[in-house]
Design a protein around this nucleic acid. Sequence first.
DNA 1: TGACAGTTTCCTGTTT
DNA 2: GAAACAGGAAACTGTC
Length: 183
Amino acid sequence: DSYKLDAAYISFSHFNVLGVQLCSMTKEDFTEAAGICGQHLYSILQDIRTNGEAEGDTEINPFTTKIEISRASKVPSGAPISRSADLQPKRMQSSHLWEFLRDLLLSSEDTSGILDWEDQEQGIFRVVKSEALAQMWGKRKHNDRMNYEKLSRALRHYYKTGILERVDRRLVYKFGKNSYGWH
DNA sequence: TGACAGTTTCCTGTTT
DNA sequence: GAAACAGGAAACTGTC
């Protein structure tokens, strides 16, 4: 968001490295790994290395933070940077429930009042038709036994990870600090 | 093949 | 009484 880049076009799979390793990459290594955004990303990295944190950008980017937490911890220190033959960026269709809800809220298609924003600026939304929503989710996951009880249990797991925050109202949820893309 | 994240399923109890 | 919420526990599934 800060650099007006579409994260979907960045090959994050090639950056399973520590910060030290990242900063020691040559320009050729970096641009090869980063794909079509390589040149631009490399100049941003050089700027950060030279000037420290980008001016006015003291917040942690939740997207990159997510990558660090979920991927980097699995890579042993000093592991070589992967060199996949396929360096083309891939637009993955995520199957995560909260992203499904987010995309439904943001989509222009008619959701027949199944899910609605209460306050988009704060990320607060309401489930209007609980069972219909569960059926949509079940359809996405090819699971015809899905229901709202199970869906809501999955949503409650998000409270402890900060993807969602509690709203003490029935059928009302709020995106938390570790969610993104709904603003 | 094992570890892990993200659910899914089932359950008991509570609140609205 | 029904629907929704809360959260523990274990199983399952896809990815790395």
